[in-house]
Amino acid sequence: MLSTSPHITKIVWIVSALLIGFGFTDPERETKVRVAPESEVVISGTTNVNEFTCKYNLEELELPIRLAYDDKAEQIQFSNAQLKLANDCFDCGGKAINKDFRELLQTEEHPQVELRLLYVDPPQPDNQKIGVGMEIKIAGVARNYETILYCEQQGNICVDGTIPLKLTDFGLEPPRKVLGMIKVHDEIQVKVALSLKEI
Rank of each mutant, 00 (worst) to 15 (best):
Y119R: 12
G131F: 02
G133T: 01
L179C: 12
E59L: 09
H110N: 11
E198R: 06
A142T: 06
G155F: 07
A142E: 07
G140D: 02
I20V: 12
E38R: 13
H110T: 04
E173Q: 13
V41D: 05
E51Y: 10
F24N: 11
T107G: 00
P174N: 02
F101K: 01
S3G: 11
P37V: 09
V49I: 15
T47E: 04
T9I: 12
V113G: 02
T46V: 12
S44E: 11
K32I: 03
L118W: 08
V15A: 08
Q153A: 05
V132H: 05
G161H: 01
R34H: 15
T168I: 04
R29A: 08
L115C: 09
R176P: 03
S79V: 06
V190S: 01
G23F: 11
E187H: 09
G155D: 06
D186H: 06
T46K: 15
V113Y: 03
I136P: 01
E108N: 15
E152T: 14
D91W: 11
C92R: 05
G171I: 02
G161L: 01
P123E: 08
L83P: 00
I65R: 09
L179S: 09
E135T: 09
Y119M: 02
Q128H: 13
R29Y: 15
G171F: 07
K166V: 00
M1N: 07
L61A: 03
K95H: 10
G93H: 12
N87H: 13
K55N: 11
E187D: 08
A36S: 14
N98L: 06
V15W: 00
N98V: 08
L194N: 03
I8E: 02
I76Y: 03
Y150N: 14
N156Y: 10
C92A: 05
R34E: 12
D186G: 04
I43P: 02
I11L: 13
K32H: 15
K95A: 09
E30H: 10
M1C: 07
D186C: 05
N87L: 13
V190M: 13
L105S: 01
K177N: 05
S3L: 10
P122H: 11
P37I: 08
T168A: 05
E28Y: 12
K10P: 04
V49G: 06
L61C: 05
E51P: 00
Q75S: 09
A36M: 13
L19S: 07
V33Y: 05
Q106G: 02
Q189W: 09
I20D: 12
A81K: 00
K183I: 03
P164L: 04
S16Q: 14
L63V: 10
E109I: 07
E60S: 14
F170C: 02
V35C: 05
R143C: 04
M1H: 08
G131A: 03
K55Y: 07
G93K: 11
E40V: 10
D100L: 11
A142S: 14
A81R: 01
L61Q: 07
H110D: 01
N87S: 13
K99Q: 09
V178N: 08
A73R: 14
N87Y: 06
D91K: 06
D70N: 14
R116A: 12
Q124N: 13
P125N: 07
